[in-house]
Design a protein around this nucleic acid. Sequence first.
DNA 1: TGAATAGTGTCTTTCAGACAGTATTGG
DNA 2: CCAATACTGTCTGAAAGACACTATTCA
Lengths: 252, 252
Amino acid sequence: MAGRQGTDSGAGGKARSGAKGAGLDFPRPLTTVDIVIFAIRSDALQVLLVRRGQAAGEPFPEAFALPGGFVDVDRDADLEACARRKLAEKTGVVSPYLEQLGSWGSATRDPRGWSATHAYFALIPASAAEAALAADAQWFPLDGAGVTPKLAFDHAEILQAAVRRLRNKVEYTSLPAYLMAEEFTLPELQRTYEIVLDRPLEKSAFRTRMLSADLIEPVARMRKGPNRPAQLYRLKKAAAPVFFARTFNAPE
Amino acid sequence: MAGRQGTDSGAGGKARSGAKGAGLDFPRPLTTVDIVIFAIRSDALQVLLVRRGQAAGEPFPEAFALPGGFVDVDRDADLEACARRKLAEKTGVVSPYLEQLGSWGSATRDPRGWSATHAYFALIPASAAEAALAADAQWFPLDGAGVTPKLAFDHAEILQAAVRRLRNKVEYTSLPAYLMAEEFTLPELQRTYEIVLDRPLEKSAFRTRMLSADLIEPVARMRKGPNRPAQLYRLKKAAAPVFFARTFNAPE
DNA sequence: TGAATAGTGTCTTTCAGACAGTATTGG
DNA sequence: CCAATACTGTCTGAAAGACACTATTCA
């Protein structure tokens, strides 16, 4: 059952087995990795897109797409390494919050043939969002669950899934902490939650929840402003995402 | 950036582009789909495994593995169709609860070369669990997050992720409803929750939660037994999984 | 009648929602 | 002083935990 009797017809590449054994002589789908990279910029949730080239045979020339590309079987040890490589190439960020989102594969999503992409999503702080941006990369604010330009492939669908997943998880996790700079105040963190959820949250419930979670710790500094200064916090070392037992604003 | 400069070294298949265009002449990973199929049998959570063959070149001969195999670019329109095909081949079940679990891909997980698998998990009712079982398929009760036999590839890791995901989601969703027969009582549903979570639940809180969710409806029959009969329910038509605002047993 | 399981009611606890009130800065 | 924002306290309400209580069957 595990051995496959592949036929040779159909579009796409045709694989030729190495010396390793029999039964691999059938067409293989293309394998790619794409990343949905989020950051808070200009008081809005934004996503990083790249403009595609126009070389011969390139589908969707000039269109915007999620950063990503083919898995390189020589350079990439595994899928996550591939995602990190592509993230670093576009942003310079090396250790963001990175989560696998899902995979999309079909005969039709890429005109070059059957292809499957492994999608990830990353959260990076605004401070890192501009530092080492690739020339072809550009930030776009989210409009609902999408973005203004028409995206290549099925990337609009992937982006929509990423936004949904993010918004959903933000209801009961500490993920927005990964969108913050190294030091931040509680009102700033609350504002990040509110931007992602597109909804105001109760101040006191928010503070109680965050402070009772084993997530952040105060530093010996305050954020100065034209009014009362606010306590600065930072993520505790090795702070894994926290899952809360309830969502925000649970009652309708 | 989207065009890839592939080298030709390394193990695995080498792809040859069709007539479609340039830039696809590099090795492609193997692409597979695997399914973690759960059912409640003998008052326990069980998972379906298949024994691998021993043809020449087959890795992990005779070992147990998750049902799955290569994507067939001619027969499978997309990944989910591929998963449904394999599920139907092994169990005869055609419309179970099916959810994408994630993907695992690396240079080393398959001795035949760089490979990536798209993992799904399915919940099927016990009644369907034996009806049309494939000859090489067998049910195994879960022991913790794993199973007694040593599994092929990285399937132990995938199974562990599936169990974790299932247990986690059962805390705040109605997923166990998909493990039930068409008609079931509330105590039976509660027992299913308890089996999956491996923890007793409060009867009255459980009933309140289930009955106030827009999930099940009573039928005009009762489950007879040696004691007080219980109301039978069925899933409402087109009942999507329900997400509850709180987990069970929230306070430590 | 008693065993067994189905189902309800009642009290407590927890924690978010609402919102008022206090604290601390700059101007 | 006032404006503005940080932060705290207090009351309420919703839903779960604990558990006692009633209901309905068969033997």
